[in-house]
């Protein structure tokens, strides 16, 4: 098995059921015909290259605390400053610039609805710009990870 195939197998095969056993990397290695050390080295390398963000738990939205998607229409000449102000809130965990009149999109997560509302309000107060809140009402897809095409 070449390296690229091994990497694809690692990323595709272990997005969902990472082993909850004392030596999970050894278990993964057994299924791929590799040593524990080789699995760890490959994962560290994928992480160094940025292809792997992390191995970890993905928490369901709104099971611990609450969150909302929010968006703002920011004049282009203020985008850098406003984006930096928004990103500086620890409650903001994603912040994207998107091509649209409504050009700044971010997710605010906090322990309660009240805390989320306070963050949105503070952003409005400090920027003088309107923030629209778009909280999830329903989810129609359970995130099973992201499958890379083989080959």
């Amino acid at each position: 098995m070449d390296r690229a195939t091994t990497e694809t197998k690692l990323i595709n095969g272990y997005q969902h059921e990472f082993p909850l056993v004392p030596r999970p990397f050894q278990r993964i290695g057994e299924s791929l015909g590799m040593d524990e050390d080789e699995v760890l080295a490959l994962l560290r390398d994928l992480q160094d290259r940025g292809a792997l963000a992390r191995i970890g738990a993905v928490v369901s939205p709104r099971t611990i605390g609450t969150s909302t998607l929010a968006a703002m229409t920011v004049p282009p000449d203020r985008l850098e400053d406003v984006a930096a102000l928004v990103s500086a809130f620890p409650e903001v965990n994603h912040n994207y610039e998107r091509e649209h009149d409504i050009n700044l999109w971010f997710v605010v997560a906090a322990p309660s609805e009240n805390d989320v509302a306070t963050v949105l309000h503070n952003i409005e107060r400090r920027t003088g710009l309107e923030v629209i809140g778009l909280p999830m009402l329903d989810s129609y897809h359970i995130d099973l990870g992201f499958r890379l095409p083989c080959g």
């Binding site: 690692l10 990323i11 272990y14 997005q15 969902h16 059921e17 990472f18 909850l20 994962l43 292809a51 792997l52 963000a53 992390r54 191995i55 970890g56 738990a57 993905v58 928490v59 369901s60 099971t63 611990i64 359970i142 995130d143 099973l144 990870g145 992201f146 890379l148």
Partner: peptide, 9 residues
């Protein structure tokens, strides 16, 4: 509460 444990690409 945890949706999955694994590689996050």
């Amino acid at each position: 509460i945890i949706r999955r444990i694994g590689a996050v690409p």
